[in-house]
Design a protein around this nucleic acid. Structure first.
Lengths: 223, 223
DNA sequence: CCAAAAGTGTTAGTGATACACCCATGT
DNA sequence: ACATGGGTGTATCACTAACACTTTTGG
């Protein structure tokens, strides 16, 4: 620790960010097609170098905004990947983040350094550059854990929502059906929802709208 | 991402490692007293710069061995801390690791760059250098989680052990008593233990020895 | 009238907790 | 004989999982 800060050659550090959203009842992630070598024309998780005066989280946020125009969302650090051979250009350590965004808020801005940006269903991911497959696999595990034990799911919903909407999100993430009665019972018993008014103009029996209570602790066992 | 790898000034990267053990029925961590500025004479979590051709995990393992002489143990990456101001000497990102070692295997090697190395009860931690208090708090949360949901606890025990020994470890980590009957029932019902022979030469009813089955999956809900 | 999603209760099974006494050994 | 930790069973409670029909609205 007490070695001089300049004694050793320094690595580059990047922040990569796995960006999830739900579209068409499907869990998707954003990938960018690399315009330059190495791995030219391969798809990759968005990311970029951490600037010298920027925190890791700020770097991840900057990448997110560059790619999607989205700010102020749930963002979580996942893991740091530092195999010395993970980038053929030299020593590059990456700090991986993950975020979950409401697809209505997105406007894709193809950044100048990539030839293409696209959403991919997590069920149909192409071959990825670097060790990005490992990062993706890791993030998926963490994502499921987060849905099971926290209220992240609500960051995918508008301010007011129905029980049915929450249930659909859980069914997409876990790729299975839940019993409607048990699901509602469970969610309501957690005492994290506030009743709002009835939803109007729906072509079926009008559902109750709920909002998430403000003062919820971080961890709530949902499922 | 496609910016040139040399376009931005590079940060230093360190690996810090929170080393836990149990001694005298108490959970302890290893701290080193800093011999040089900044934070001279403050206690700190052991760590050091990641070498350019060394993986993050190898750097953490190297630090661990330098401080304790211990190799081949459970080691887990916790989180990366990258606030630009966390080190007054310049930009230093640290990747924090945690490990759990059997206190019988330790021989402390005071490394040359620190003036003192000591075990501290987690209940009596002195003021720490840098943002090491944050790292420690984070690691403690993770540690408890690990004990609840995985079999790490067994890395603190010899090959063969009694139910009572496991229970004592859990009581130390969670700082509370468990009911003996319920605890044994729970542990045995998990089907992760193999019965060995009876323990001999104890001054009370001889207990059954168990070993951990080899083919256990990573996550087992213990408590 | 039809389609679509909402709303709602009971039962059976499983796992968690609370609780107290006798046993085998060494000294 | 005593001290030490080991070993064991039952009853209650809380939570989970399985399961189907009626309601309200718009088109």
């Amino acid at each position: 620790m007490e070695d001089n800060i300049h004694k050793y050659e320094k690595p580059s550090v990047t922040a990569d960010i796995v960006i999830y959203t739900i579209q068409n009842n499907d869990l998707k992630i954003l990938l960018v097609k690399r315009g330059i070598t190495p791995f030219k024309d391969k798809w990759a998780i968005p990311g970029g170098f951490v600037r010298i005066h920027e925190s890791l989280e700020d770097a991840a946020k900057r990448e997110l905004e560059e790619e999607t125009g989205v700010k102020d969302v749930y963002l979580e650090q996942l893991y740091s990947f530092g195999d010395p051979k993970r980038d053929p250009r030299g020593r590059v350590i990456t700090v991986a983040y993950m975020t979950l965004i409401n697809s209505e808020k997105i406007k894709l801005n193809a950044a100048t350094d990539v030839s293409e940006v696209r959403w991919f269903s997590v069920k149909k991911i192409p071959q990825l550059a670097f060790d990005h497959k490992k990062i993706l696999d890791y993030s998926l595990k963490r994502l499921k854990w987060k849905f099971e034990y926290t209220t992240v799911a609500f960051s995918l919903l508008p301010e007011k929502f129905t029980i049915g909407q929450i249930q659909k999100i859980y069914e997409i993430i876990f790729d299975k059906k839940f019993d409607k009665r048990n699901f509602a019972k469970k969610i309501l018993s957690l005492d994290i929802l506030k009743k709002e008014e009835m939803k109007k103009n729906v072509s079926h029996r009008p559902p109750m709208l709920y909002s998430l209570k403000k003062d919820i602790g971080e961890i709530v066992e949902i499922l």
